[in-house]
């Protein structure tokens, strides 16, 4: 599903050059659930951003579901993100003026699905997350766990091939964290969606099939859990 070879990324700020990724090779099969661990600044988020086509790599090759990701214009990138990828962020990143249902429906809005239809689909996903009664609440009326479940529903609605989660439990307490992980594992199992989770919590990483450790921009360890 994801196949990257020798990925390099350097950030240039003024005269400073920061070589963040120094040749990453990684193969993720369809349906795998993988966690990425590493210290702050190790490059794990950068890797996730490149995989999410939110950022571009300098060297190397990236194949997403067989499509070569290189020199894409922003329209094409947006289309690929919409079709193949679902994002779950640490800070939820819900749109503040849209209610839970509208937030979930947003990816379908960009596919020009009619409002009635996409809201109906969004309600199904909210129901699966156990948040049907909250569908008309705004994000600031919801708890952290609820918000993250809405974000997951939003990541799922366009039926992506891969879900990329950047510290999905970073802002949640341990009980809620485990609940969110339950949901993610369920989705991985039942829908066969490939999942990449960046985390620095060991007990979260333990719940995935494989843990990749990144140190100073290189993959130093791959552990099967």
């Amino acid at each position: 599903m994801i196949d990257i070879t020798n990925i390099h990324k350097t950030y240039i700020t003024g005269t400073n050059k920061l070589h963040v990724l120094k040749g990453i090779d990684l193969k993720v099969d369809a349906g795998e659930m993988i966690s990425v661990m590493g210290a702050s600044g190790s490059g794990k988020s950068t890797l996730l951003n490149i995989l999410g086509i939110l950022d571009n790599h300098d060297h190397g090759e990236y194949l997403l579901s067989g499509i070569k990701i290189e020199h894409l214009n922003e329209s094409k990138a947006a289309q690929l993100r919409n079709k193949y990828l679902g994002f779950v962020f640490q800070s939820f990143n819900l749109v503040s003026f849209k209610n839970a249902m509208e937030n979930v429906a947003l990816p379908l809005y960009y596919q020009n699905v009619k409002r009635k239809k996409r809201n109906a689909i969004a309600m199904e996903y909210l129901d699966r997350m156990g948040l049907k009664e909250w569908s008309h609440h705004l994000p600031n009326e919801l708890s952290g766990g609820q918000k993250q479940r809405i974000a997951i529903a939003r990541a799922l609605i366009a039926k992506p091939k891969v879900i990329l989660a950047d510290e999905p439990t970073g802002a949640l307490d341990s009980v809620t964290s485990q609940e969110v992980m339950d949901i993610l594992t369920d989705i991985n199992k039942n829908e066969n969606i490939t999942m990449l989770i960046v985390t620095h919590e060991l007990d979260i990483a333990k719940r995935t099939q494989k843990t990749i450790r990144i140190t100073d921009g290189m993959i130093t360890e791959i552990v099967k859990n």
Partner: peptide, 16 residues
């Protein structure tokens, strides 16, 4: 900026 970033991550094309 951030809100627009979210929309773009979810697949909003520049023209939108």
């Amino acid at each position: 900026t951030k809100e627009i970033g979210i929309q773009r991550a979810l697949g909003a094309a520049p023209r939108i």
